[in-house]
Structure formats: structure tokens, C-alpha cells
Write a protein that binds this DNA or RNA. Structure first.
Length: 269
DNA sequence: TTGTGTCCAACGTTTACGTCA
DNA sequence: AGTGACGTAAACGTTGGACAC
């Protein structure tokens, strides 16, 4: 059994869920995907062994609290901002537009007086490395690279190492740690979001309980209702018909859309 | 199909560094 | 100036998945 859980994201199919299960992109809320054991998913081209479609449940058709997202451009929280409209912290810090930014960055790296000298010499002879902080400019350049792609292939890693005068291993480690930091921060944000959701739902529950109590009180004051037998309402999700099962065992159905009660219609009367 | 080796991301931990009281 | 506590970032070790052979 495979379970995917998306908190607060606009519902979208999970990797193992096909196009047929798409939900409205306007909705926000909780999204769960369920894959039964025996379903097989292979890499990019998804093939399924089981004929039964997996489930994707949108548990909240509305989002009581807009879920904040860590802004990859700025490194702080952002809510419903245009992702490309923001000027990055790097650009803000160094006062430049995105155009030509790369050239300026490289120039700064080259002129950086504090060169991280824990270089390839140590790497080759396998001696232990003395830990040195990366310079601000090196960090800034890595941050920029991370915003463009948070994982590196070998080619990118080597290129970055060469540009920043660092060992490829350092680049690799930096990206690993950076991903860990991002994840940690997003987890914190998600926790806060869930906390607020919980509070909102608790309030809603309280309100509904109160409403129910009022309705029950109203019902006890109106003898007409008390004469009706106790019923259990169930709705068929596909045809949206409600079945009322009475305590005596009889049952009736009604169409939710039209509100028509067949047993009261002239044809049935 | 199974076994083996390689690569890499994720994760937890350790360690060095910087800051502050 | 020296020192210890603390937070952060760099680095390390392990594990497991994907992939090629």
C-alpha cells in the first residue's frame, strides 16, 4: 500500500495517479493518494498492473487557512505571490537585475580575497580537512544556483566547483545540507499551517455542534416531526440520490439535485 | 531472473566556527 | 582578554533506491 499526502497544496495528481483522477486546480486543502499493493509504477512512464485506479482524496474542498510556502527566491515565507515577480535576496543584496547577474557574480568570486584554500591538495592525499566557512560571495553564488536547480548532476557540480574554487565534494555537501535546511523549514511551516487548520476545524465543529443542539431543541418543540419514524440518511456518491431507511425497515429515495421525493409525487400517489 | 557494483539523495550525527553574555 | 554556552554550517557515515552490466 502506498500513501501520498499533500498538505495544503492545490490538489494535483500524485506520481502514481493518472490523468483521470485530476481535481480542480482552484481547490486548496489536504490531498491524499492511495496506491494498493500490487500496483506497479515505473519511473517516468507510469504503468499500472492493477486495473483498479488508485484513489486521490481531496479532504478539504476549501482551505480555511492559506498554506504558506517557503519562497525559493527569497528564502523566507511567501503566501500566494507570483513566483517570478520577486527580486531575489541575492539581487537585492547586490543591487542588480537578473540580466547580467551571472557575470557580476563570477566577477565577484574571482575578486574575492578570501579564497577557500582547503583545496584539491588535501583532497588528493586524503588528509582530514580543516573546516572553513564559505565566503559570503561563494554562499551567495551557491544560493543562486540552488534556486535554479536544487539538485546537481556531475557536470554542474564540477562547473560550480571550478567557478568557486572549491572541491566538488564541497559543492555536493553544500547542496545536501541546503536541501535539508529547506526541508526542515518547510516542515516547520507545515506544522504551523496544520495547527491553524486544526484550530479552524475545531471552531467549525463547535459551531456545528451548537447548531445541532438548537435544531434538536426546535424539533422537540414541534410535535409534527416527532411523529415521523427515525430515519438514517445515506447518499449514493455516483447518482446523488438519498436513501432514507426507517426503523421499520421501509426505504425511500430522493434526488438531491431536484429535491423530488418520488413517494410524494403525483405519479406515485 | 539474480547478483554485484556504482551513483546519489536522504537522513542523522559530528565537528568546527562565530557570536554573545 | 579569556571563557563557556549556544546556534549554525560544513563535513561525515550509513542506508536505501535506481540503474547498468
Amino acid at each position: 500500500m502506498e500513501l501520498a499526502l499533500s498538505l495544503g497544496d492545490p490538489p494535483k495528481p500524485f506520481s502514481f495517479i493518472g490523468e483521470t483522477q485530476k481535481l480542480s486546480s482552484n481547490d486548496l486543502g489536504f490531498c491524499m493518494g492511495l496506491l494498493r499493493q500490487g500496483d506497479a509504477v515505473y519511473g517516468g512512464d507510469e504503468k499500472r498492473v492493477s486495473s483498479d485506479p488508485p484513489l486521490q482524496l481531496d479532504l478539504l474542498p476549501f482551505s480555511p487557512v492559506p498554506r504558506p510556502q517557503l519562497c525559493p527566491e527569497r528564502g523566507w515565507l511567501a503566501a500566494a505571490e507570483e513566483p517570478n515577480s520577486a527580486v531575489s535576496s541575492f539581487q537585492m543584496a547586490f543591487g542588480m537585475s537578473r540580466r547580467g547577474k551571472r557575470e557580476v557574480e563570477l566577477e565577484m568570486i574571482e575578486t574575492d580575497q578570501r579564497v577557500n584554500t582547503r583545496g584539491s591538495d588535501d583532497d588528493e592525499n586524503g588528509s582530514t580537512h580543516k573546516k572553513l566557512r564559505l565566503s559570503q560571495k561563494q554562499s551567495a553564488f551557491l544560493e543562486e544556483s540552488f534556486k535554479e536547480h536544487n539538485t546537481l548532476n556531475t557536470k554542474q557540480k564540477l562547473a560550480l566547483a571550478k567557478q568557486l574554487n572549491l572541491r566538488p565534494r564541497q559543492i555536493e555537501v553544500w547542496f545536501q545540507n541546503r536541501r535539508a535546511r529547506t526541508k526542515l523549514k518547510q516542515t516547520e511551516v507545515d506544522c504551523e499551517y496544520l495547527k491553524r487548520c486544526c484550530e479552524t476545524l475545531a471552531e467549525e465543529n463547535k459551531r456545528l455542534q451548537k447548531e445541532l443542539q438548537e435544531l434538536r431543541a426546535l424539533k422537540s418543540c414541534q410535535p409534527f416531526y416527532t411523529q415521523l419514524p427515525a430515519t438514517t440518511l445515506t447518499m449514493c456518491p455516483s447518482c446523488e440520490r438519498v436513501t432514507t431507511a426507517t426503523a421499520s425497515g421501509s426505504s425511500n429515495t430522493t434526488d438531491v439535485k431536484t429535491g423530488e421525493y418520488p413517494f410524494l409525487s403525483p405519479t406515485n400517489a
